[in-house]
């Protein structure tokens, strides 16, 4: 619980320089954008503000949200991880296998963590030790992980045979479904990790100026491996939720384009593509913005085929605004 305390201490750190509008915009543009979109949505559709709908949005973004938290760390370090969607599927498939084989939910969850972290660790080794560009390394992982998942599941879906497993994604605490709670807790933990610990500080330093970071006696390789492993671990948490929700995972259609949604949320959240600059809070609101847009288009009966167009537009607008600083 020391965590919540240090979070409170963090708050005043953000606001002592208050004053100029331009500063407010450059620091909090994503929150302002969120508020505008939120207000617009509530005006456009009366059903939007309904509590159930709000919780529904949170529920829908929780999986991508957790993946996007990991993506933020990777992108802050100056890299990118294209493999998240495929690794999610691989983790899902292996987790269900472990679940069915052992009948233990705990062993299934542990398996998920291990598979996700190993995939991330391999990404990290390729990037840090192999000096392979992260785009290429994780592109390779993306193809490989999906292929293994398809092979194991013979191209189809596999379902869990242990009854309690679906509780993870479908039970709730008061009005909040577990995935929402997990997403919020992960956001807080990653926030603390990135802003209150040396790991976070070092990730920012590496993303901003890798050579200077190395000359500052930072173990650049280790940090990078840690970054990708952590992203993998977060993907495995998302994979558990995804699998638990329907008690099955499809090796061919689950996790498709998750990397794009996660990257979109990170970019909308104001993290710089080249690293070193960005905030976890930004990603959190980036995820919510994407969720609200999806929700609005559903409420307004926009063709699902057009939703990608709107998403694309929003990403580009977000980047254009960020360029102005």
């Amino acid at each position: 619980m020391a965590d919540t305390n240090s979070l409170k201490e963090q708050k005043p750190q953000i606001s002592p320089i208050k004053g100029k509008l331009s500063w407010l915009w450059s620091e909090y543009s994503v929150i302002i954008a969120f508020i505008i979109i939120f207000i617009a949505a509530s005006v456009l559709s009366p059903r939007f503000l309904d509590m159930n709908n709000q919780l529904n949005i949170l529920m829908q973004v929780s999986i991508i949200g957790i993946v996007a938290l990991g993506m933020t760390i990777v992108m802050l370090s100056g890299g990118i991880d294209l493999s998240v969607g495929s690794v999610l599927v691989l983790v899902g498939v292996v987790t269900v296998l472990a679940l069915n084989a052992t009948g233990s939910i705990w062993i299934a969850v542990l398996t998920a963590f291990i598979v996700g972290s190993i995939a991330g660790f391999l990404n990290g080794i390729m990037v840090a030790k192999g000096r392979i560009a992260s785009f290429i390394a994780t592109l390779g992982m993306m193809a490989a992980a999906r292929s293994i998942a398809l092979y194991i599941a013979e191209g189809g879906s596999i379902s869990g045979e242990v009854s309690g497993f679906t509780a993870i994604a479908n039970n709730n605490l008061w009005i909040f479904d577990y995935p929402i709670i997990i997403f919020l807790i992960m956001t807080v933990l990653v926030y603390i990790l990135m802003h209150k610990t040396r790991f976070g500080r070092h990730v920012y330093a590496i993303g901003s100026n890798e050579k200077a970071a190395l000359l500052s006696a930072i173990r650049v390789d280790r940090i990078k491996i840690g970054v990708y492993s952590l992203a993998g671990l977060l993907v495995s948490i998302a994979a558990i939720i995804e699998t638990s929700r329907l008690n099955s995972i499809s090796s061919s259609s689950s996790g498709v384009q998750y990397e794009l949604d996660a990257i979109a949320a990170v970019i909308i959240g104001g993290t710089r593509m080249t690293g070193g600059r960005g905030k976890i809070i930004g990603t959190f609101f980036g995820v919510l913005i994407l969720g609200i847009l999806n929700n609005m288009m559903n409420l307004m009966n926009v063709s699902p085929h057009l939703q990608g167009f709107v998403k694309g537009l929003i990403i580009i607008i977000a980047v254009v605004f960020q360029k102005r600083e």
């Binding site: 020391a2 209150k196 040396r198 901003s208 000359l215 500052s216 006696a217 070193g276």
Partner: peptide, 29 residues
């Protein structure tokens, strides 16, 4: 510019970058 400063970090954070252990209590900065 190339080798020493981390331009996206604050002045304070640049100062503490190589000796972060001095500013940690229970693993938190």
């Amino acid at each position: 510019k190339e080798n020493a400063i981390i331009k996206d970090l604050s002045v304070i954070h640049n100062m503490s970058l190589s000796s972060i252990g001095h500013f940690e209590r229970m693993a938190f900065i």
